[in-house]
Design a protein around this nucleic acid. Structure first.
Length: 413
RNA sequence: GGAGCAGUCGCCUAGUCCGGCCGAGGGCGCGUGAUUGGAAAUCACGUAAACCGCAAGGUUUCGGAGGUUCGAAUCCUCUCUGCUCCGCCA
């Protein structure tokens, strides 16, 4: 059943039967090699004894030389098998939880709730790229000059709006939702990328820096989650909540022709991320509160949005359950993703080796990890420019941001 | 970027020159017990993780990866990280 659910996803055939065969073969080899090593270890204890008693160990030494060669040969085969197993395993996606809507793609997603009403305009509204360009707070042409397509330059109150949103979001999550603010590196190594599931499958989606074999972070999820890799936490520490602002860098390789204008799909955008490490038994509740924390940003900005649960076909590679928060975007005439909140169960914890020990003691167990955007800042700017635009081309600053912006209105005058 | 030094069991550290008695000693911390009216102090014992196995047990790990050897914490090579000095630099 589970297998059927997994294979119904768009990730297609990842060869689970193969994995099983490789695994069995590997275990067989491992047992064999370990038996030989046990023999070798025993003999290694005999040799010094014989020598000490003045005996002749040469016969045993010769025997051990042969054994050593055999071990080397068999071990090599076992290692090859192990790396084949690991490669195969790294390409197996997470399993959707029971209750996740089953379907081929986003058309099977389930609307969970809708908050606020899309605004009715009594004038001809503009798309955010026009609002921003006309106010001289966004500049896509000059961005293209210095970088290329799919980049934006923010200017004046446009730059300040981006900064205001970052501060507003971080203040909300640290002050009211109990998250600890982190400012991580914006480049990470291969290991970190593998820990959260971006590698090995999605290397082509990311910017790579060959000089040091680093990757520009596609999301703060990567540095934040891997912050605790290979650690064993105390149960009392859980849940750990981290939030961070980072720019995010994405190649958008497969999206040629889509969302070509504006701030919706760019190579570099700012995002405030929420990450949680939780007990296995509470992770789904924690997903609800994490999603609520992200929604709170939109509520305070008074932007209309809805929450949808992704179907099995739309679910990301590493996730077991995901809520997307979508904000109303007048120029698109529909809701557009502004946050994605996922429960990864122990999928990332296994890859990144993040464990906890229960207070009573016992063996370390894997934590559950979750994350969500809280929120994508560029898209929030787009939503504000569109939803808060006035007939004269100015933009009213949302109440919640006025302290950060130092003004109530963005206008040309 | 150049030169030098260093990375050991939660933390600090012994061991590395002279390979086997070291999966590894000591201290701190922590746990259990003794002592105590209770505590402190003291004493005793215990105190890493992963994998294979029903179990008994076995295997692996002394930053990481290779190599030499019957055998590597210890010798060799590469690499990563930290510190000091020099160069450069916000």
């Amino acid at each position: 059943m589970v297998y059927a659910a997994v294979t119904s996803r768009t990730h297609g055939d990842f060869g689970l039967p193969d994995v099983k065969a490789i695994d069995e073969e590997y275990r067989k080899l491992l047992t064999e090699v370990e038996g030989l090593k046990a023999k070798q270890n025993a003999a290694s204890k005999e040799i010094p004894k014989i020598k000490k008693e003045g005996g002749d160990a040469s016969a045993l030494l010769a025997e051990m030389k042969a054994l050593s060669d055999e071990i080397t040969a068999k071990n090599e085969i076992a290692k090859e098998q192990e790396s084949r197993l690991k490669d195969a395993l790294l390409n197996v996606p997470n399993t959707p939880q029971d209750g996740v809507p089953v379907g081929e793609d986003e058309t099977a997603n389930l609307e969970i709730r809708k908050v606020g009403e899309p605004r009715e305009f009594d004038f001809e509204f503009k798309a955010h790229w026009d609002v921003g360009t006309d106010l001289d707070i966004l500049d896509f042409e000059r961005a293209a000059k210095i970088a290329g397509a799919r980049f934006a330059v923010n200017k004046g109150l446009g730059a300040r709006l981006e900064r205001a949103l970052v501060s507003f979001m971080l203040d909300l999550h640290t002050g009211e939702h109990g998250y600890t603010e982190i400012l991580p590196p914006f480049m990470v190594n291969r290991e970190a990328m593998t820990g959260t599931g971006q590698l090995p499958k999605f290397e082509d989606d990311m910017f790579h820096l060959p000089a040091k074999d680093f990757f520009l972070v596609p999301t703060a999820e990567v540095p934040l989650t891997n912050l605790l890799s290979s650690e064993i936490l105390d149960e009392t520490q859980l849940p750990v909540r981290y939030t961070a602002y980072t720019p995010c860098f994405r190649k958008e390789a497969g999206s040629a022709g889509r969302d070509t204008r504006g701030l919706i799909r760019v190579h570099q955008f700012n995002k405030v991320e929420l990450v949680k490490f939780t007990l296995p038994e509470t992770s789904n509740d924690e997903l609800e509160s994490l999603t609520a924390a992200a929604e709170e940003v939109l509520k305070r900005l008074e932007l209309p949005y809805r929450v949808v649960e992704l179907s099995t076909g739309d679910l990301g590679f590493s996730s077991s359950k995901t809520y997307d928060i979508e904000v109303w975007m007048p120029s698109y005439g529909r809701y557009v993703e502004i946050s994605s909140c996922s429960n990864f169960l122990d999928f990332q914890a296994r890859r990144a080796n993040i464990k906890f020990r229960r207070t009573g003691g016992g063996k370390p167990e894997f934590v559950h990890t979750l994350n969500g955007s809280g929120l994508a800042v560029g898209r929030t700017v787009a939503a504000i420019l569109e939803n808060y635009q006035n007939a004269d081309g100015s933009v009213t600053v949302p109440q919640a941001l006025r302290g950060y912006m130092g003004t109530e209105l963005i206008s040309n005058s």
